[in-house]
Design a protein around this nucleic acid. Sequence first.
DNA 1: AATGCGTGGCA
DNA 2: TTGCCAAGCAT
Length: 304
Amino acid sequence: MTVTAYSFTRLSLRIATSALAETVTAWYRANARDLPWRQPGATPWGVLVSEVMLQQTQVSRVEPAWRRWMERWPTPADLAADPPGEAIRAWDRLGYPRRALRLHACAGAIVERHDGEVPDDVDALLALPGIGMYTARAVAAFAFRQRHPVVDTNVRRVVARVVEGAADGGAATTPADLRAVEVLLPVDHEAAATASVAFMELGAVVCTARTPRCDDCPLTAVCAWRLAGSPPSAAPSRRIQRYHGTDRYVRGLIMAVLRAADDPVARDRLDAVWPDAEQRERALGGLLADGLVRERAGTFTLPG
DNA sequence: AATGCGTGGCA
DNA sequence: TTGCCAAGCAT
């Protein structure tokens, strides 16, 4: 291939991919859900809190919890000033309560390292408790309007279908995923940030995992998966872990008791949640090791 | 890199 | 009803 032809191909690619982002952004402007952390007045802290709550938890369940949380702890310093157990209690039934513990630790780290202000660069965000590759980039893009590939399960699925013609994306984000998304982003930072949330929104409400609404999709005419006849997933479905009766389930039972309690809880009240003593001990031991539960004189509480 | 980690909604 | 899946992270 000559240099000229190569350059031409690259240019065409750039034009095609840029049109993709523009199309999805236009769709987003007309169809975006009105979520409180997307409001102009939302603070970087509010965006960070929303992203942590949204880790593996649906928007419909997060929204009321987020409103209550932000009213009670409008800044990182407010949260850091309260005991971690209060964060766990306020987390209520969002699931994965270690996220609440880490969010509390995150608030403390922001106060200590960053003078109470959410940092605006990806590396500083990545160094905070509970903030990983996805959340760091999401905060940098959505709160600070920077240009970063923001790749979650929705974006992996959209790119897999539209660009690669596959039924679904990989289980976890790889460096290759970041590069694949980076080339789709507009050069302008503000436009890139909006395109990022637009790709996510498309995956969340149209290009869904089980029953995609292709008739409502702005990319249906150019979607490689659609054009290939929407072939089924090639990969074996990942093993789904059952829930009822697992250690995780028993941990949930114990945490529900402790969240509801105003005073230290005696062991026999925890023993009542589940008949299998061995499994109970394993679950309680895990919670103690995780710092989600404290023991004092044979009684149990959330961490003070 | 595979695994453990809550809870609920929906088809 | 039951199984899948949901804006992941840490180890």
